[in-house]
Simulated scan of single mutants.
Amino acid sequence: MYLIHARLTGPPGLELPDDLKARLRAQVTGTTSIEHVTPHPDAQGGPVLGLFVAAPSLVEAERAAETACLRVLRSHPALAGCGLDRCGAAFVAPVFEADFRLRPGRGGPGRGTGPGLPPS
Rank of each mutant, 00 (worst) to 15 (best):
M1A: 14
Y2E: 09
L3R: 11
A6I: 10
R7C: 06
L8P: 06
G10F: 03
G10Q: 04
G10L: 06
G10T: 03
P12C: 07
P12S: 03
L14R: 00
E15K: 05
E15M: 07
L16Y: 10
P17V: 00
D19S: 12
D19F: 05
K21Q: 14
L24D: 10
R25I: 15
R25C: 15
A26V: 09
A26W: 07
Q27F: 08
V28L: 12
V28M: 11
T29Q: 15
G30I: 10
T32W: 14
I34H: 09
H36W: 14
V37Y: 11
T38D: 14
D42Q: 13
A43T: 07
G45E: 08
G45I: 12
P47Y: 03
V48D: 06
V48G: 05
L49T: 04
L49Y: 08
G50L: 13
L51S: 02
A54W: 09
P56H: 03
S57V: 05
V59G: 14
E60C: 06
A61P: 06
E62V: 14
R63C: 05
A65T: 04
E66T: 06
C69K: 01
S75R: 14
H76V: 11
L79Q: 02
A80N: 10
G81T: 02
G83N: 01
L84F: 06
G88D: 00
G88M: 01
G88A: 05
A89Q: 08
A89K: 01
A90R: 03
A90S: 05
V92D: 02
P94H: 00
P94S: 00
P94E: 00
P94I: 00
F96P: 01
E97I: 09
A98V: 10
D99K: 03
D99H: 08
R101V: 11
L102G: 11
R103N: 02
P104V: 03
G108F: 13
G110E: 08
R111L: 15
G114T: 04
G114A: 14
G116M: 11
P119I: 01
S120M: 10
